[in-house]
């Protein structure tokens, strides 16, 4: 009898904890990134620089974190995964942007974690100005996917 009681209490606890866990996983919002601790799911490097970070959620409800926008693109291309949502960071400090709303700048001079040279903006003006400053150009997502094959030998901030 006593054993049953204990098992019952444990089950209640388990149910409460698992429900609380589910509450935190809002798949419509990007995940929290623990800088200096989280790993990029594509290149396995520790995520350090906020401005190049991206994230996605798979159709089976898994959050994915990337240290470089190029890593998100390569993951999408190579894994052939169905990503139901993806986000990138606004390099002007405006927080997360849905990937389809972001404007991407490509510059071979930009030192990004994996050397892909992409950065995202929400503002067209900010994107244009950054592209001019870094001798880069605005690229659409499809072009960005193709550009992930390039890697610069010499990079400089």
């Amino acid at each position: 009898m006593r054993r049953l009681k204990i098992c019952g209490i444990l089950l209640v606890f388990l149910a409460v904890f698992s429900l609380a866990g589910c509450g935190e996983r809002d798949l419509t919002k990007p995940p929290k990134i623990a800088y200096g601790r989280d790993f990029c799911v594509q290149c396995r490097m520790i995520i350090e620089e906020e401005r190049f970070v991206s994230a996605a959620v798979t159709d089976d409800g898994h959050f994915l974190k990337f240290d470089d926008i190029g890593c998100l693109a390569v993951y999408e291309k190579d894994q052939n995964m169905s990503l139901i949502r993806s986000w990138v960071r606004d390099a002007s400090g405006g927080g997360w942007i849905a990937r389809e709303k972001a404007l991407f700048v490509y510059s071979p001079d930009l030192v990004t974690p994996m050397g892909y040279g992409f950065v995202a903006f929400v503002s067209d003006l900010a994107a244009q100005e950054f592209a001019k400053e870094k001798t880069g150009r605005l690229v659409a997502w499809n072009e960005l996917l193709n550009l992930t094959n390039q890697n610069q030998l010499k990079r400089e901030d």
Partner: peptide
């Protein structure tokens, strides 16, 4: 190789250097 800085004053960075003779300049 990669280079990950553990700076406490500047923003840390983590860059991959996948190719031989690759260079990355930082200030």
């Amino acid at each position: 190789h990669n280079v990950r800085s553990e700076s406490k004053v500047e923003k840390p960075f983590n860059i991959a250097q996948p190719l031989q003779d690759m260079t990355t300049a930082k200030t």
